[in-house]
Nucleic acid binder design. Structure first.
Lengths: 198, 198
DNA sequence: TACACAATACCCATTTAGGGGTACAAATGG
DNA sequence: CCATTTGTACCCCTAAATGGGTATTGTGTA
């Protein structure tokens, strides 16, 4: 039987963390781990059988790396959804958090129902994405992404070459490989796929 | 002096509506009106000097048209942001609401801070959109959009021509006009703009 | 250390796109 | 009813993109 996709809890207050874990387990969510700080989170994710689908992340956690940064990092790494959990409601924090495009921003004090709704939304979003898998994912290296972005901004290969201080032949090689690797026929299509499949 | 963009409150419980209005006014938000049902909301919006930027909408309101449908309609009409307000947390309602891509889904009972955070997120999103108005909007006719879509799917001009049973020269004319009218230099860029600016 | 991969760069070739001009019938809007 | 827009189509040309092959360098990692 297929288990539900997992949830990672990032919260340094043990009592809060435990209560969240209990609540999620009662509702039959799969908790892959509880992290107290960034290092824990990364270790849990790398050791887990499958990456987290949703992370519930306190914004104010111990350690150098703060919640917003950590969540943004994990989201990019594992393409998971983010739910922020915080007592902070100041404009600066909200804006920073909002930049990572979280599914929900749950402000403390919150009710169990509020947190569960956030989870529902997260899993609904994941389900939506799985329903429409146009292309698995674009396979692009760092340099390739960079060139693709410039081309989508309207630059020609020659202009890209000048901007990056490389030969136009190199740019052409990169473009050719991008299309071949991903089995697509033209750059307009690649730009389209980048915008939809991320 | 420029006023803040307006907020429309849609809530049929008068006491709740009033308390929300008071809270928003205290925080210097501009409340353009309080609607008790769909008809009120539409009337207020059409009579307002400027359309609402954000609507705070109760999901369970009086009348035939429900909150989710109304909010979706208003969002499309006025390109405003939606904040849902509800006591309902059942999966079906949450999913339906989530379809309209609201900025926030505030579950009752909620604190003032939770509602204000939602407002902050909504205005932050609006501000972000205004900050990056790369191109007002793409000026494309029906046929042009059709051709642009096919090109973004990877078809060449020749393939588009065959698919639409028109001359390749016609396709090229359309493509040339699209770029000239919108003052852009290549189709990858046009596809990029279509995906961002709609 | 050996191997894979990323990034660089050149050669060849053909096809396509971009940019210019012109024209005309049909549809649309004042 | 007339002017504008839209869709259609042709001509020209140059620049750019696509597709193939090959090779060197550094950078990690098995």
């Amino acid at each position: 039987m297929i288990r539900n996709p997992g949830v990672l809890i990032i919260e340094d207050e043990l009592i809060t963390a435990s209560s969240i874990e209990e609540l999620l387990l009662e509702e039959d969510y799969e908790v892959i781990g509880v992290a107290r700080e960034a290092g824990d989170a990364l270790r849990i994710c790398s050791q887990a059988i499958e990456p987290p689908a949703v992370i519930v992340c306190d914004i104010n956690i111990k350690g150098r790396i703060q919640g917003v940064e950590l969540a943004g990092h994990l989201k990019e790494l594992y393409q998971c959804e983010v739910i922020f959990l915080t007592a902070y409601a100041d404009t600066k924090t909200v804006k920073a958090a909002f930049e990572t495009d979280p599914v929900m921003y749950v402000v403390k004090p919150y009710t169990d129902v509020q947190l569960l709704v956030a989870l529902q939304m997260a899993f609904h979003k994941i389900y939506q994405q799985k329903k429409a898998p146009i292309q698995t994912r674009l396979d692009l290296t760092g340099r390739e992404k960079e060139i693709a972005m410039l081309v989508s901004q309207g630059l020609s290969s020659k202009q890209v070459a000048r901007k990056l201080f490389i030969s136009i032949e190199t740019v052409k090689t990169h473009r050719r490989r991008m299309l071949q690797k991903n089995n697509i026929s033209s750059f307009p299509h690649l730009v389209y796929l980048m915008s939809t499949a991320g």
